[in-house]
Write a protein that binds this DNA or RNA. Structure first.
Length: 653
DNA sequence: CTAGGGTTAG
């Protein structure tokens, strides 16, 4: 055996790229204990090449046996960091306790390492802060490394509102004289920015001696996008002296998260023209933007981008790509990507991406099949799975299946939340079972929220039920007094039952309160072009031509039998004006532009921020027949595939 | 031994 041992050591020293842990395992396989030289450098080499929890543990025991670990805080620190990295903070802590017990209790480095380990491990914020307080009680001085870790914990979202504690520690950093350290300041700005404490973030920022630090600005940029102020974020971005890939990614994701994915696309082109290289995170953000826009062509482009650049496709990116294909209607590719995942690695999130994708496109039966397969393969459905399946049943009008699913959910002890009730109310309501929907609401074990009453109100609008609609609306006006959509829905119900007085009252009320319907907006893309239209848009460069085309379409529609649905206009105007207003709906302008500018037979892809209205829905059905074109519309709620005069939603949306 | 972007799915 000594010979083999010697050979192993030889290999180890000559070929450092050979994983010593592998050799170590080899030693174990030949049933002898492979203990390298009891020197720090040997263990250091072993630790550096550890590539998993198992190998870490293998090195740990001889370290303890040989007693080396007790003398080397550097080896100990590596073990601590390693265990934290592989999600074993308890093991990390036992190493730390051992080292502290061996007379290293005054080493700031060791305390810092353990605090950092907790800060990096999930769900250990409390432990990190407790350790900081123990450190202080042990009279060990925190330093410029300690404070950033602590501030990061105070900033982490899992830790709840730790801003007060953060302020206390800030004071301690000032007293310890570390408040003018670059990293301490950056961490402070980040912490305050994360909690929306703009005044304090700004104060620290202003007092910083080195102002052009990229990190500081990135935090503020992120704060603005999280607060929904994407314009201010852009202002910070524009003012930045130096932008790195994180600045670009922050701005790109800021746009997507604030519903301006098309802006992200524009900015991405600018990024390409700059000297900053996109990375895998950039790709993930852009794929998510394409999913949001429902743009398969661009989504594919970014998928190719990932392949060309040889980016590592981790679980997040893989799921994001799958989600993009599912949302953009390429369910075949989404399905292929799903199948490429090792079955043992498929968890609820992978299944949910697929299930929600099939559901969004109105494939109710397939959704239910997936749902059964998921359970057959031993993956537990969670609250999101049930939301997706229930909403799929609703979209496809599969009422009995939906009821069954709702029962099953309770058997599987997934507690139904308000959103699940909202899906079931939506499903029953659309199917015309308004009374059953109301009965369900009354049976709820907790107070129904706006989503639940909103689903009932929508159903009342579809089925023109003023009485139940009034009940739902009264609740909604109480729960969400500022939400314009509910007032609009109720006024549609009044209009449908010719209650013009009530319509006027409601509109006057909205006017007095300064409430405005969010502006409708449609986007069309073809080739390399993307065009956006507002309702009655006169800013688009070709608006005059588009208006002429819309008029032509209106005539063709009438000839084909389309009857304008005047209830889709809120305004008490002349009938003729109402028709005109309908023609200028953003999706009609966009589709007219698409018909003008694309070759016949080409599929038209539209995205709209709000739900498509009745009149446009009917018009799009007729247009798909008249021009023999497929029209794919992603509205605020789901996808519609118009083909040959019918829509994939079966007029159920 | 230090930060900063993405954490999915409805």
């Amino acid at each position: 055996m000594p010979l083999l041992l010697l050979q192993l050591r030889g290999l180890l020293s000559r070929k450092p790229f050979l994983n010593p842990c592998f050799l170590y395992s080899l030693g174990s396989a030949f049933s002898f204990s492979y203990i390298p030289d009891s020197t720090e450098s040997h263990y250091d080499l072993l630790l550096k090449s550890a590539d998993g929890l198992a190998s870490l543990r293998q090195i740990h025991s001889p370290l303890v046996v040989s007693g080396v670990v007790s003398q080397s805080i550097h080896l100990g620190a590596q073990l601590i960091a390693g265990y934290a990295k592989y999600g074993e903070p308890t093991s990390a802590r036992s190493v730390f306790d051992h080292l502290i017990g061996c007379g290293n209790e005054t080493s700031s480095f060791l305390w810092n390492t353990m605090i950092r380990a907790y800060a990096n491990a999930a769900g250990c914020s409390y432990e990190a802060l407790e350790l900081y307080s123990l450190m202080r009680r042990a009279q060990v001085s925190p330093n410029n490394y300690t404070f950033p870790f602590v501030f990061r914990v105070c900033a982490s979202s899992e830790a709840g509102s730790l801003i007060l504690l953060g302020r206390v520690v800030h004071g301690e950093a000032v007293r310890a004289g570390f408040d003018s350290d670059l990293h301490v300041e950056a961490a402070l700005v980040h912490m305050y920015a994360k909690w929306g404490e703009f005044g304090d973030a700004r104060k620290v920022f202003d007092e910083m001696p080195v102002k052009d630090l990229i990190g500081v600005a990135n935090s503020i940029l992120g704060m603005y996008t999280r607060c929904g102020d994407v314009q201010k974020a852009r202002l910070v971005f524009e003012k930045m002296v130096e932008r790195n890939v994180i600045s670009w990614n922050s701005m790109l994701s800021g746009y997507t998260q604030n519903g301006q994915a098309s802006e992200a696309l524009v900015l991405f082109d600018e990024m390409n023209d700059s000297y900053v290289e996109a990375n895998a995170v950039t790709a993930l953000i852009m794929v998510a933007a394409c999913a949001y826009l429902g743009s398969l062509r661009l989504g594919r482009k970014f998928h190719n981008f990932v392949i060309d650049r040889n980016f590592t496709v981790d679980k997040n990116l893989h799921n994001a790509l799958m989600d993009m294909y599912a949302k953009c209607g390429d369910l075949k590719t989404a399905w292929e990507m799903f199948n490429s995942i090792n079955p043992s690695m498929r968890d609820a999130s992978s299944w949910n991406v697929l299930i929600s994708g099939y559901g969004m496109h109105g494939h109710g039966r397939e959704t239910l099949n997936m749902f059964s397969r998921m359970q057959a393969e031993g993956v537990d459905p969670n609250h999101i799975t049930f939301t997706s399946v229930l909403s799929a049943c609703s979209h496809a009008g599969l009422v009995n299946e939906g009821r069954q699913c709702f029962d099953e959910m309770q058997k599987l002890s997934v507690a139904p939340e308000a959103k699940h009730y909202a899906c079931v109310v939506d499903m029953l309501g659309r199917a015309g079972k308004l009374q059953e929907a109301l009965d369900l609401i009354k049976q709820m074990p907790f107070p129904p929220n706006d989503a639940v009453w909103g689903a009932l109100l929508l159903a009342c609008k579809i089925h023109r039920n003023k009485e139940l609609g009034q009940i739902a609306a009264d609740k909604l006006f109480e729960l969400q007094p500022g939400h314009t959509g509910y007032y609009v829905l109720m006024s549609n119900i009044y209009a449908a039952s010719q209650r013009w007085g009530e319509v006027v009252n409601l509109r006057q009320y909205m006017k007095n309160k300064g409430m405005k319907k969010p502006a409708a907006f449609s986007v069309i893309e073809f080739g390399e072009e993307i065009h956006g239209f507002h309702t009655a848009d006169r800013e688009h460069p070709y608006w005059e031509e588009v208006y002429r085309e819309v008029e032509i379409l209106a005539v063709k529609l009438k000839m084909a039998g389309h009857v304008p649905d005047l209830s889709c206009t809120l305004h008490d105007m002349e009938e003729e004006d109402k028709e005109l207003a309908l023609n200028l709906h953003s999706e009609k302008l966009a589709v007219a532009f698409g018909i003008m500018r694309t070759e016949s037979g080409m599929t038209i892809y539209l995205t709209k921020n709000l739900r498509v209205c009745n009149d446009c829905h009917s018009a799009l059905k007729f247009l798909s027949h008249i021009f023999d074109r497929e029209i794919v519309v992603r509205d605020g709620n789901r996808f519609h595939h118009f083909k040959g005069g019918v829509c994939s939603c079966n007029d159920y949306w």
